[in-house]
């Protein structure tokens, strides 16, 4: 059989981890953008938009990400729609992230006291101005912990993209573990790398929270 040195294992895992990082960034940036648009649409109070977005959120929160990936790649192929694994993974992760993020942020906006809306309205601010200058800056502060918590989930969620052919960190770990028959060692390294990816995110969130809290008691 083939021999892997410890360095071989680590090197291959780190190379695969690139894709984990890229997928996570795309999911978060794309999901954040879509989620923000959905949030503002929902805040306008339009009943149709509210119901539609609510259903969208329920759909993506209520089904497993694995299934969403599967259906977006294999499922739509049954109807003749061709997608590349990249396209399918990015779209699935963006939709998934947007559903969770818009719901998280909706809760954060709801946590801003109604009096802020009333005071800014009484000062003749329009809806867009209320959002941009009064409500969203306050909601942002509240949003940092749950948003970062979710970002860490996204990083781990990219592991599921292996079902549509991505060789990211977890899949690479599986392949190497299966050939070296050293699952503890290999998966231990995988866990360490995930930790190394996620921990700085948590640290950054902490510093962000402290920065935004300047001026608050």
């Amino acid at each position: 059989m083939v021999e892997f040195t410890l360095w071989d294992i680590l090197r291959n895992l780190l190379l695969a981890a690139r894709w984990t990082v890229v997928l996570s960034l795309i999911a978060f940036a794309g999901g954040g953008a879509v989620g923000l648009v959905l949030l503002v649409l929902r805040l306008t109070g339009n009943r149709v938009a509210d119901a539609a977005i609510g259903a969208y959120v329920q759909l993506f929160q209520g089904t497993p990400l694995l299934m969403q990936l599967f259906l977006l790649y294999f499922g739509i192929a049954l109807f003749g729609v061709e997608t590349s694994p990249w396209m399918a993974a990015c779209v699935a992760l963006i939709l998934y992230a947007s559903a969770y993020l818009t719901e998280i942020w909706r809760g954060c906006v709801a946590a801003v006291p109604r009096g802020q809306w009333e005071a800014s309205a009484s000062l003749a601010l329009g809806f867009g101005q209320q959002l941009a200058h009064v409500v969203l800056p306050q909601a942002l502060r509240i949003a940092v912990p749950p948003t970062v918590g979710f970002l860490v989930q996204v990083v781990k969620g990219t592991a599921l993209a292996s079902v549509i052919g991505f060789v990211e960190l977890t899949k690479a770990g599986g392949m190497i573990a299966n050939v070296t028959y050293e699952p503890l060692l290999v998966y231990g390294c995988v866990a360490l790398i995930y930790f190394a990816l996620c921990f700085p995110i948590s640290l950054y969130a902490g510093s962000l929270e402290r920065k935004l809290h300047v001026g608050r008691r």
Binding site: G115, E118, A119, L123, V134, P137, G215
Partner: peptide
Amino acid sequence: RQRVGMIFQSFNLFPH
């Protein structure tokens, strides 16, 4: 609303 101002019981200043 540019002609009518309102002061609230709970002040509602913008904390940020």
